[in-house]
């Protein structure tokens, strides 16, 4: 009751201008991490290495945008890694086994991903299967389908230009795949910030019943969110195929956990209603820089796993503490 009288005297801060939301902590962490690595290694703070980091986060970054939407509405999507593999295999099969033009094969692969997302969305909204369960089911189904397409075999031998999408740095710094990631980031950011559809996701995540009574079509929005997440996973699969110059059905195992970690490090709450693309980008960068930095430092692979786990726990705990105090 006191707070009513006092109000909050501070005007909206600069951070909200960039809609960082709860991500100021992770941003500080990221900057500290970069500062530390710049001093600790000769090779971290070089244009070449930073461009490598951008390369290395493309797949995670694209998937994390979709996951941000899902987590914003209070959902979870465990199927992203499997859908990534399914999309890859559909593309590889259509282009190399059936001889279809690669661009067309890519479009069809994205449609296949969308179909998988639509199925999970419908399971959640029409049959009231919890998101955790329906995406868990899709994770298994999509992985199985990806394996069935070639009976578990990899496919290689794509046209030369395809691999080059992930290699040639236009203007000295921008590969097509990195550019694609930046476009996805920008589109996601604008969507959440400046469109009614994006604002509605916050309302749904904040309280579904409030959103429904406010006239928001919660079911349709939910289905569209899962479709978007699936399509972006499919797109990430195409990017990964370009990066590896091959496709294999075992790709993307456990990527869902990396993706969720990135979104959560970025300040989103798993109960929905808070989070944003700016935070997610920071989360993706934290994971990317950390992996890269630990390799550069020559930290042993087993120690790396420990460090990454500790960082995830610290990032989220710090955010929760900050909220309690604030």
């Amino acid at each position: 009751m006191i707070s009513v009288a006092r109000g909050r005297t501070s005007s909206p801060s600069v951070s909200s201008l960039f809609s960082l939301g709860g991500a100021t902590g992770p941003l500080i962490g990221l900057l500290l991490l970069c500062a530390f690595l710049s001093f600790a290694t000769d090779s971290f703070f070089t244009a070449r290495n930073l461009l490598n980091v951008l390369d290395q986060i493309t797949v995670l970054g694209i998937m994390a945008v979709g996951m941000t939407f899902v987590i914003l509405i209070g959902g979870i999507d465990l199927s992203v890694g499997s859908i990534l593999a399914l999309s890859m295999m559909v593309m590889g099969y259509l282009s190399n086994e059936l001889g279809m033009a690669l661009p067309l094969a890519i479009v069809i692969a994205l449609f296949a991903s969308a179909a998988a997302g639509a199925v999970t969305g419908l399971l959640i909204t029409e049959f009231s299967v919890p998101a955790f369960i329906s995406t868990l089911a899709m994770m298994s189904v999509a992985r199985g389908l990806a394996n069935m397409i070639t009976d578990g075999q990899q496919i290689v031998g794509f046209p030369g230009w395809f691999n080059l999408l992930a290699i040639i740095r236009h203007g000295g710094f921008l590969t097509v795949t990195v550019g694609l990631m930046l476009i996805v980031f920008a589109a996601g950011w604008i969507f959440l910030r400046n469109t009614t559809g994006g604002r509605c996701l916050y309302a749904i995540g904040g309280n579904q019943e409030v959103a429904r009574l406010a006239g928001i079509n919660v079911r349709l929005s939910t289905i569209l969110v899962y479709i978007t997440s699936a399509v972006l996973s499919g797109l990430a699969g195409i990017v990964l195929a370009a990066r590896l110059d091959s496709v294999q059905p075992s790709s993307g195992v456990s990527y869902e956990l990396d993706t969720i970690a990135a979104v959560v490090i970025g300040g989103a709450s798993l109960s929905g209603g808070t989070g944003g693309i700016a935070g997610t980008v920071i989360g993706v960068l934290v994971i990317g820089v950390l992996r890269n930095g630990l390799n550069l430092l020559g930290v042993s692979p087993f120690t790396q796993q420990v460090v990454i786990g500790v960082v995830i726990a610290l990032a989220v705990a710090a955010e929760v503490l900050k909220k309690k105090k604030g």
Binding site: T196, C200, A203, V210, A211, L213, A214, T274
Partner: peptide
């Protein structure tokens, strides 16, 4: 608290949710 407001969102946002047509 359960049906009228998203408690952890701002007043502006809460008012906006039901008035998207007018705002945007």
């Amino acid at each position: 608290k359960l049906q009228g407001l998203v408690l952890e969102h701002s007043i502006s946002e809460n008012i906006g949710y039901a008035n998207m047509k007018a705002v945007a």
